[in-house]
Design a protein around this nucleic acid. Structure first.
Lengths: 219, 219, 219, 219
DNA sequence: TATGAATGAGCCTTCATTCAT
DNA sequence: AATGAATGAAGGCTCATTCAT
């Protein structure tokens, strides 16, 4: 009679949970099967039995993470469909930051993705297709709405949308990827509680940036 | 006190050169002493002899890189001092991108820094103090000029400057850190030759973003 | 007391059948319980449940093989008892080759024996007593007839008989044991269809050899 | 100042020597690097350092064995060239038996070959080309002389030569491959000292067999 | 009776490091 | 100053086996 979400007391589930933390913390190559199994209270051979090998476990962790993360933090955060593009962008940024900086239990979902992006394994292709591309397309549609009125993007326009998407995602990821440098530069700044503050900044900065591009002013 | 940049045919210099490439490509943990020594045409024991251990070599590489990189690509790219803040920002962004995306012979300097930021070792503190902080301060001064006129930043203002700096650096690093994902999302887009294009975008996006913040419009 | 040869669709029977093929192909040590169970469509624990351990299964396979093989290919191949010793020898050699080179459904019986001879396990003693010795005694009796007339063999004579038996068996086994080398030396020679040809050669070679020994010519 | 043949006190040489014994005794797959290194008084990593991996060591052992064995027991055993074919055959058989049954220090050369023949690894091809084929060609030339006068072998003739070669080699190998069965069948028969006796038998048996074939008598 | 899950010993290999020269 | 050889710790993985159901 399992009360906790989906019976996490089976070995396979515990392994995924433990592996998620360890992979997110050390990266795929530096993580050791022994530490994962130790945390999961399982034998070293359990990984081989359930996931074939270390990489199989990694893929399973990624897939679990992809589903879980997008389910927990949908890009629109339950926003009503008739919301303005500005509202949608703010919500997208906020949810993105929550995924990579949030401290909720299984906190490693977003961290794992950020790691995979910065130091990809062979599983990157799968991650891009099943998780990153949908998010990217959603962001691109918001940006398309913000950059012009109604006309489908084409040619030059598509490049601008893509570059804007990179600008927004880059700003968000910087607060995860560069967290150690930020801590060293400004010891007492921004902790998890500041996610709201950061989301505000990135949203305002980006909305103004997009409007500036639309204005088309020269450099 | 040997000048490495002059006589790179001694073992020590060749080791640093080879280690730079390997560390930049694989990261500290995944790089192997054997590959480094092999590329440098040196014995496996050479690293321990000259640098005490693998980490000692890494620190030496970082320090060499810090000096070399800032010398080769000064943040102002030789800009005259009376340039406008807008010109200074554009030059900063351009030089930053050149450092992390350029294909010049010592191409690994910037890549190495970006790696250290994304996956720090114990040497991060040193890197921050001697290399990152100066760049950051220079960027902060440009931003200060752009955000207001003359008055030194304080309180809330400092937070804004810091967040803007992160926004700009984050946009730049995204094109290095996320290069594999970008390649997977848009196979034929942006190659090194597009650095100008990317620099243009980030500059325009950011200048508009900063101006938007100064306007202080509500969300 | 189950009759395996009749109902081979029970787990135990399927395990023996599958194990026979795998042991014959890979040898005892290199064969894996997992492959055997996989082929038999049974659980990995089935071997330990039914046969205590891997070796127990091996012994069961051997015993099944001993009975089955001698039943299927009797050394005299149903030859009438009043056949000449020459006819008996030819038939013995032919049936021996069929057992180790034949491609019949239970093709692994002879191969398994040949493997046990070349790389014995602890079960060798049992195999010798229950399977090899009877064959050997039968061959020895044929040889005794060929070497002299009527007088029981004794002393020096017994050594000659034994050596002749080894000569004949060695010639036959060479075509199984050394099959890989033969294939490498003479790529297109001798395939299973050549059993007749090989049997002819060994028979003629050996009959002449035996007669030569009887003639007692000096070296 | 090494007095023993060729300085066997270096690690590499000791590893080859130890590996030879272990491989000959257990076979490639069942032999463990640990036992080999333990016997050689070396670290487990020594194998990797000197021979890349276990298979590299195996190949090195084989090559060392090929040279050493044929040097120690040349197929003609120093026989003068104008010896009769009969003398040559006897010498070939004798030297062959010495190689696989002899107890001289490094006793494992022939045993290793016999193992490789019966249970080949990926290195078999090399062994065949560099070691077995020359021996085979030499034996074939002797057989050619014995089977007819002067005329080069062709067609059917070549098959007969090949089959005779297999008959002779098979008889010899039987005393190594089947040694355990022989011991079980006839506990007190044939020990190493009987090599002469066995060589005599196989030679006489085979010479008579060959002559019988030449006579071309029907079955 | 039969099984999926889990185990622990042991394998080969790789690594940064140290030693003797 | 520099090297080839050797080291021991640790890693991922495979195996026959046992456990709980």
């Amino acid at each position: 009679m399992e009360d906790i979400s989906k019976k996490t007391d089976d070995t396979k589930g515990r392994l995924i949970e433990a592996a998620g933390e360890v992979f997110a913390h050390h990266g795929f190559r530096s993580a050791t099967v022994r530490e994962i199994c130790s945390r999961a209270g399982a034998n070293v051979a359990a990984v081989n039995y359930h996931f074939r090998d270390k990489e199989g476990l990694y893929v399973a962790v990624l897939e679990h993470s992809l589903q879980s993360a997008t389910r927990k933090y949908p890009p629109d955060l339950g926003l009503r469909d008739q919301a303005t593009p500005e509202e949608k962008l703010r919500t997208f940024i906020h949810s993105f930051l929550l995924r990579i900086l949030g401290e909720g239990v299984p906190a490693w979902h977003g961290k794992l993705m950020a790691r995979e992006i910065a130091d990809p394994t062979d599983a990157l292709g799968r991650v891009v297709q099943s998780s990153i591309r949908p998010l990217h397309m959603y962001l691109a549609s918001i940006l398309s709405d913000l950059l012009k009125e109604g006309k489908p993007a084409e040619g030059e326009e598509r490049d601008v949308i893509f570059l804007c998407a990179m600008s927004i995602v880059g700003q968000c990821l910087q607060h995860f990827t560069g967290r150690r440098v930020i801590a060293a530069l400004r010891p007492k700044s921004f902790n998890p509680a500041d996610i709201e503050r950061i989301a505000d900044h990135i949203t305002r900065f980006s909305l103004a940036g997009i409007r500036g591009l639309r204005a088309g002013g020269s450099l």
